[in-house]
Amino acid sequence: MSMGRLLLVRHAPTDANRASIYAGRVDDDLAVDATDFVERTTDYLSGVGVARIVSSPQRRAILSARGLSTMLGLELEIEHALAEMEMGPWTGRTGAEIALQFPREWNLWREDPRRVAFGQFEGLAAVERRVTGWLQTLSMTVEGNIACFTHETVIKVLLSWSLGAGSRCYRSLIVPNCGVSSLVWDGSGWRVFSVNEFAPILK
């Protein structure tokens, strides 16, 4: 069996991203200038041997993935394990607004994000359980490269987990819109192969 890569692609920019709003699972559209991001990322991914395309169910991820699906003639699969973290009462609010309304939780989020989980706020530990659970279903079947269009939180959690750091390095990772990072299965575990190997915002 060939050793494929899991290409982790953050969706293209949205107005919420630009306004530093925690969108959570809101189905927002891409920003008006997102087309350039999508086209450049599609061009890059079309040349790295993608054999399968999987997307979060959020609209912004699906819209970011459609161009590659069309170009390569591959089905766009929806995977709920790749969904953005459920933000609960933080959804639709900026960090400044959250800090005012949830000061204790916000301070903890800035200091030790793994410890934040309350009410409808999913939390990083729960995100890690669902996305790594999905990864384990791929471990013995991955052939070729799989492009996974998902979200900042999911990608940072997967990179941290693959490094064996849990979420301890979560705040040290930068994942720009349309940034492409990757994991590889080496027969015994998932390893980090690249971080932001491609990122249109850096060009």
Rank of each mutant, 00 (worst) to 15 (best):
T70C: 09
E143H: 09
N145H: 10
W109P: 08
W185M: 07
S162H: 07
N17R: 04
A61C: 05
N177S: 14
L100S: 15
L138V: 02
L30W: 01
A99T: 03
R40S: 07
E111G: 04
L100N: 13
A117K: 14
E97K: 01
W109L: 15
V9Y: 01
E84C: 03
E197M: 08
D29H: 12
G95D: 10
Y22R: 11
L76P: 07
V26I: 11
G24K: 10
V127T: 12
R18I: 09
G189P: 02
M1L: 12
W106K: 02
L82E: 00
N107H: 14
A19C: 04
N107P: 08
H80M: 11
G166E: 15
E39K: 13
H151T: 00
L82W: 08
L45S: 02
R168C: 07
M3A: 14
S194N: 14
A126I: 12
R25D: 01
D112P: 08
V26H: 11
E79Q: 07
T150S: 00
V116N: 11
S69Y: 00
R104H: 14
A12E: 06
M71C: 08
W134R: 02
C148V: 04
M1D: 14
T137I: 07
D28M: 11
N107L: 12
C169Y: 09
V48H: 03
S181H: 03
D27H: 08
R171P: 01
N196P: 00
G47R: 14
V50L: 03
V32F: 10
A12L: 04
A12D: 08
I155K: 02
L6I: 04
D29A: 13
A19K: 14
G123S: 10
L163K: 12
A31Q: 05
V131W: 08
A65E: 06
K203P: 08
N196A: 09
V32G: 12
P89A: 06
L63K: 05
V38R: 02
L72C: 03
